[in-house]
């Protein structure tokens, strides 16, 4: 699904990623953990194609294609989805409108028929129920006046609708109370399948009680310094991020 080789990236001349290597197989769920500022969001942004990041070295292959050659919207249409750490507000544009534009952009790209208003409505209602989102949120402006938890749930709704091959969830769990966390996890688990892969970026191991990853990686100083199974998350929780510094120094 995804193969990252020796990835180096800068922002505003500052080196953030220092040689990331990561293989994500089809159907796998990988968790990436690490202290604040370690480069987790940077990695997510580079994968999604945000342009203020400069990739100085390395390569990324996604479903046998060179990801770096693709514009952000092409990546999205090819099935790369990023659930943002900080979803943006778009005043005056209803959630419905954005969601419909999004799914039809994907359909069109794949040579499928676009959904008409009725088909779309049916589908979106189904998906909204899945993430326990009230229908009124569909008619509100994108993320405007949404609480932190509602914004995150809205991201999961979009993911559920678009059914991406590769989902990257950037701290979707942060700031959620336990009920909201369960809803998010439920949404993710419903989408989890043999054909889809996921990268869960998280600061806490808490999320991993609900979404059990196949692999856990620890990111520090722009490098993956340790990889393991789901036990690694528990070990990290136990020893704290101080342990990371020791590992990184070693």
């Amino acid at each position: 699904m995804l193969s990252i080789n020796n990835l180096h990236a800068n922002i505003e001349g500052k080196k953030i990623l220092n040689g990331i290597n990561l293989e994500v197989g089809t159907g796998e769920v990988h968790a990436i953990m690490g202290p604040n500022g370690s480069g987790k969001s940077t990695l997510a942004s580079v994968l999604a194609g945000r342009d203020n990041y400069e990739v100085t070295e390395g390569s990324i292959t996604y479903r046998d294609q060179d990801l770096m050659e693709m514009d952000p919207e092409i990546r999205a249409r090819e099935g790369v989805f990023l659930a943002f750490q900080y979803p943006v507000e778009i005043p005056g544009v209803t959630n419905m409108y954005l969601l419909k534009a999004a799914i039809n952009a994907v359909k069109k790209h794949r040579g499928l028929d676009e959904l008409d208003a009725r088909e779309f409505l049916k589908l979106i209602k189904e998906k909204a129920a899945m993430v326990e989102m009230k229908q009124e949120f569909l008619y509100r402006s994108v993320n405007e006046g949404f609480s932190g938890g509602e914004k995150k749930r809205n991201e999961i709704l979009q993911m559920a609708l678009l059914e991406p091959y590769l989902s990257i969830l950037d701290e979707t769990d942060s700031g959620l109370d336990i009920d909201a966390l369960k809803i998010v996890a439920k949404g993710v688990n419903l989408i989890r399948s043999q054909e889809r892969s996921m990268i869960l970026v998280t600061h806490y191991q808490r999320l991993l009680d609900y979404i059990v990853p196949d692999y856990v990686h620890v990111l520090a100083g722009g490098k993956i310094i340790r990889s393991g199974g789901k036990e690694l998350a528990l070990e990290l929780e136990e020893k704290g991020y101080g342990w990371i510094d020791e590992l990184a120094a070693a």
């Binding site: 005056g92 534009a101 952009a105 678009l162």
Partner: peptide
């Protein structure tokens, strides 16, 4: 970027945001 990450072209995104 948010709109493009959801698959919209940049032009479509601008016109959607402005229309909103």
């Amino acid at each position: 970027f948010y709109c493009r990450q959801r698959g919209m072209s940049e032009e479509d995104a601008v016109s959607m945001i402005v229309n909103g």
